[in-house]
Amino acid sequence: MPTRTAEMNGGQGALLDRLSIPEPRPGPVPKISGMKAVASYNWKEGKNPVIIVPGSPPHWKPTQLPFTVGDDTDPEYINLNGAKSPSSAFEPLLRALQLTSPTYPLHQVDIVTDRNNLRKLLRWLSRAHDLTPFRIDAELAGKGTVLLTRREERDVDLEARFRGFGHNFAKSYDFGNLAMLVRSHIDAMDAPPGPAAVEDLTLRFEDLSVNLTAFSNPPSQLSYIKTGPPVVEAWKLMEIKTRAEWKRDSLDWDEIYPQLLLSGTPMLVLGLHQRGTFGTIEQIHVTEIAKKQSKTAEEAMKGLKAVLAEMKTGRKLAFVCDEQGEMKVYERTVVDPKRELAKELLERFWAPEEEGDGESEEEEGEESEDGADTSEFEEMVRREKAKCFE
């Protein structure tokens, strides 16, 4: 198993810079607008890397209370895409995007990232007292798109008692004047009443063996099965959390709200238990959680946009945050080919007329203009149709 030093500090060259937390400044929090679901997939269980596109999150089925949940003895995936993908952790995202949104304009995106990276940056910006060291690698794709890749001490925790394959969901949106493509893990989706709420319609992906297709152009070790409903509507998505009942009043809303906001998840399902027996389940809308956000969290969202703009560079860099909250920027001198995207996938980030022109200068940031169907995330989720428990 890789050590923290090998995994978190490997391949670093010269120290180039140190990032400082931006000072508080007047003005509104940058808005998230134009949110749109563009791709989704599940990982199929097994040794061979196979994704199910578009796949489906598990359907949420209200359960008669109380009920007891036992321990899960399977290992926990800390970074499922990093553990399962045969090359870059972004390969399954780009392959799923190719199948579900083949005309999606990757060349217009500023930042491609996992939500996990954004949450780590927000903890740093908030000067969280329990900050865990982290590393994010940056790489230019096309003329002006930057891929932010999460790096973990290890991708699988063999000692944990929970394992979640979940559902990978990618959304595009504008954050201020930055065009974002953000992948996140989705726990569940709201299911309509009737048979769908009685039967588990998550699809028995582990039993699928037909229609297995290898990706080509370029060839890959990754294969796919195309099955499942269309990409799930945003208003149906749910984040599930569990807490001991006595910890209910100490929930960190500054941590929870950005998790929902940055992935466009409108509903939190909170299960409260006593020693594993659940007696209460709450369903809380993101607009209610927004009211609990502190001024510190609001300033962190302002700082996030500024830091992302600084990370948007044309060099291969490693952003490393230590236990003291110091963010150092290193040149990446040693590149692991097993972590790299194939050249043909990187070429998809070029505009059609720019392919192969060899240009690498960073595109000047221009404020994006919302189309007629663009609306603020907050307005979208107010109109959502998620139902409360009866």
Rank of each mutant, 00 (worst) to 15 (best):
R127V: 00
R161I: 01
K316D: 12
N177I: 00
G228S: 01
D357V: 09
K343I: 03
K171Q: 15
Q64M: 14
F278P: 02
N116C: 12
G144V: 01
G271M: 06
T277Q: 10
A214R: 10
L268W: 13
A14L: 14
V69G: 00
R348H: 12
R151D: 01
M327W: 15
W253M: 14
G11I: 03
K316C: 07
R115V: 12
R150N: 03
P229R: 06
M238I: 15
I284G: 08
P2D: 06
P49Q: 03
I51N: 03
L99H: 06
I186W: 07
F215R: 06
D17F: 07
W350D: 03
K31I: 03
K338C: 05
D373I: 02
D71T: 09
V198E: 11
F162R: 14
Y104H: 12
R18Q: 15
E331L: 09
A6G: 08
N211K: 11
L140N: 09
S263V: 05
D370K: 01
S126E: 13
D137I: 00
L341W: 04
E288S: 09
L178W: 06
E298T: 14
A318E: 02
A244R: 02
T149M: 04
P57Y: 10
I186F: 07
V50T: 13
G371I: 00
L268E: 05
H285C: 02
P28F: 09
Y77L: 05
K328M: 14
T103P: 00
T3P: 09
G279W: 02
G264C: 10
T5M: 03
E288A: 08
G365Q: 15
L19W: 07
H273N: 01
G325N: 14
A141Q: 12
K84V: 04
K31L: 14
R95T: 04
I281H: 05
I281M: 07
